[in-house]
Design a protein around this nucleic acid. Sequence first.
RNA 1: GCCGAAGUGGUGGAAUUGGUAGACACGCACGACUCAAAAUCGUGUGGGCUAGCCCCAUGAGGGUUCGACUCCCUCCUUCGGCACCA
Length: 798
Amino acid sequence: MGGYNHREIEPKWQNYWDENQLHMTTNDPSKPKFYCLDMFPYPSGSGLHVGHWRGYVLSDVWSRYKTLQGYQVLHPMGWDAFGLPAENDAIAKGIHPRISTERNIINFKRQLQEIGAMYDWSREIDTTDPKYYKWTQWIFLQMYKHGLAYRKEMPINFCPSCLTGLANEEVVGGVCERCGTQVEKKMLKQWMLKITEYADRLLDSLKTLDWPEKVLKMQESWIGRSEGADVKFSIADSTKSITVFTTRVDTLFGATYLVLAPEHELVNEITNSDRTAAVQDYINEALTKSAVERMASKEKTGVFTGAYGINPVNGEKIPIWVSDYVLIDYGSGAIMAVPAHDERDFEFADRFNISIIPVIATDDGNIPELPYEEEGRLINSDLYNNLSSDKARKVILKDLEKKGLAKRAVQYKMRDWVFSRQRYWGEPIPIIHCPACGEVPVPESELPVMLPDVENYQPTGTGESPLAAIDDWVNTTCPLCGENAKRETNTMPQWAGSCWYFLRYVDPDNDKELADPQKIKYWTPVDLYVGGVEHAVLHLLYSRFYTMFLKDIGIVDYEEPFTRLFNQGMITKDSIKMSKSKGNVVNPDELVQHYGADSLRLYELFIGPPEVDSEWMDSGIEGVYRFIQRLWNLFERSLEQLPQPTQESEKRRNRLIATITERIESFKLNTVVSAFMEFINDAGERLDKKSLETLVVLLAPMTPHLAEELWRKLGYEQSVFQAKWPKADPKMLVVDEVIVAVQVNGKTRATVKVAVDAEESQVSDAAVNIPSVKNSLAGKQVVKTIFVPGRIINFVVR
RNA sequence: GCCGAAGUGGUGGAAUUGGUAGACACGCACGACUCAAAAUCGUGUGGGCUAGCCCCAUGAGGGUUCGACUCCCUCCUUCGGCACCA
């Protein structure tokens, strides 16, 4: 007999699991499978803090729970190891990113092993391993061959600090998501992935996902589908025309001017000669402004081109302006402006004295205050007057369609994905540029295109990556004609490796294909995906896109990679996110040392509802540590002299099974812990053997080391994870006595203990005799009695 | 500005087809053990007063209901997302 000593038992069982390979994924096709995946981390130099652990504990609890339920569980871990921090480190200290990455991985792995997580390390993957990125490049080639990867000269978001182009998704509020520097627009020839081709599929199949509402909403609004029409405005005294996209065809009669984005290709062509100087000045100014400056300017700016368009519904001549409030990369880069019914147009028209014609009245026929953006009834619209907005849209569109002046159109906010980075530490894009043959994909047999060593990691900032300086790597021969050619020197973004990694875990060493089709079929898609909500759009959208593409080329047979998603909340300290720079990081290593991994695991669960942010309190872990000790002592006491099970203990035991199972299933893991605490508090001096056994198995997913130790104390020779998750006997869950609340006019005056199936009259008789109830009823007349069996009885009195 | 989530003791939180608000834990107080402390164990702990068979109380105000943390309306605060997307 001795006190609870985690320092002894935790290493012991970790070694045991290791030696007996208990965390290796089994291969028994007769069993149902469960694929439980963590978002793999970027192995940073700062190591893991208790906030990171929350998700890992959660997924581990589920993996162990499913194992106990007889599932064959795949629970792997790996490294999303390409990325800027390692590269910036390399620039600053001259350490090769591979060296620092390897060092960081060792530390991460040690920490993960210390929580006792049941990862199958034989399946560990690393996105920077050529054996892995060979397939990242392979997927790119397939996309290229299917016309989904293309190169385009375009103004992209460029971070002057990271010296690389960024995807739209990586720009948050006009600044670089990574370093917070204001991004600039820069014309660069970029590799793009045609994610917009999948826009509708990405939107539609959101419906099929068991994901947090919030994430679904974010993806939906990111994709930003809107339905409307392309309407053609011919240009007066010209053969050209301007097409605009609008969702409000019903307001066409109110269109009093047109606006082109400064970058619009027709601007120069249509500008009147006497306006050329003014227009040029305006464009030059607009183009040098950053995105932030463009948005920040309070006042609308613009310039008249001197040209006029013809409104297709009434033949009116309306002026054509240029303004930077129209975006070149949405719709056609041109709009029809309806100042009466659009706030932005109103502001602009007001400033430049352009006429404002209301064409929508409220449903009761009043002309509302302008700008009025709601729908209503048409006015000033010729033969369409009096139609509702909805009806008018259909009719006007139909009439214009007949004349070939409009057609139904759909636009998305989502843009194609800027896929190239001018950085070193990423997957080389497997393309060769040949003066004669043009872009030539590297033959699949020559993959991977290895990332060469360089002497200088410094980005050039010229639109070329540091790879461009390595002549013997860049210079190669064309796979088609054999003549001298050059390699593509851009690399892929960090997201590339994480788009498909869930597939690689099922067959990580395969060098013939991405993964064995049988294994893909058996294990994927992922049943439960656990990670932070910060990836709600970026990673999860890209990964869904990749999966749909892989379905189209026959690699997988489903559209969605992650059936169920769970976002764990952040753990804060002093109400702010933990970070090294804020100096508020709680290091798990010391806590493991002091309280043990089981206590830390338990506190990570107990701290609060797993999906919401929770504040870290050092005293909190004390509480669960004490609980574990009380539990341990209860075991020791009980084993000295085991009592026999009683009807009462059996009921409590079965109720515990039901409660714990239900709460794990519904992810109420904080209340799982409190259920155990209540059980122990009610247990009395000793527990019978059956109760102890049940308790140990139920605890095993949460506190695996402790459970394994106690399982041996109960006389078992095998791992507790070979045991079966118990099932509650429904007969034992029925209660025969309940406490019923007695209310008078809805106020609880007393409680009364009655048989569960007691009739109203019985409860009523017992209730009215309770002094406090009697007093409340005195001198009053009971007009109504509400009786909810097993819950309340309420006397309504007057 | 638009969309969404949340607001419960000193603290973290529990309670949902509307039915005893505050489980469980932290903290605190008192007691036991001890020379003492720590640890441990036990008891108490939403607020108020006139101390009861009382009143008030789930961000504020209203509503529905026999009964509201829970449903509806208005507002406040905090957090998250989007933001000149036509």
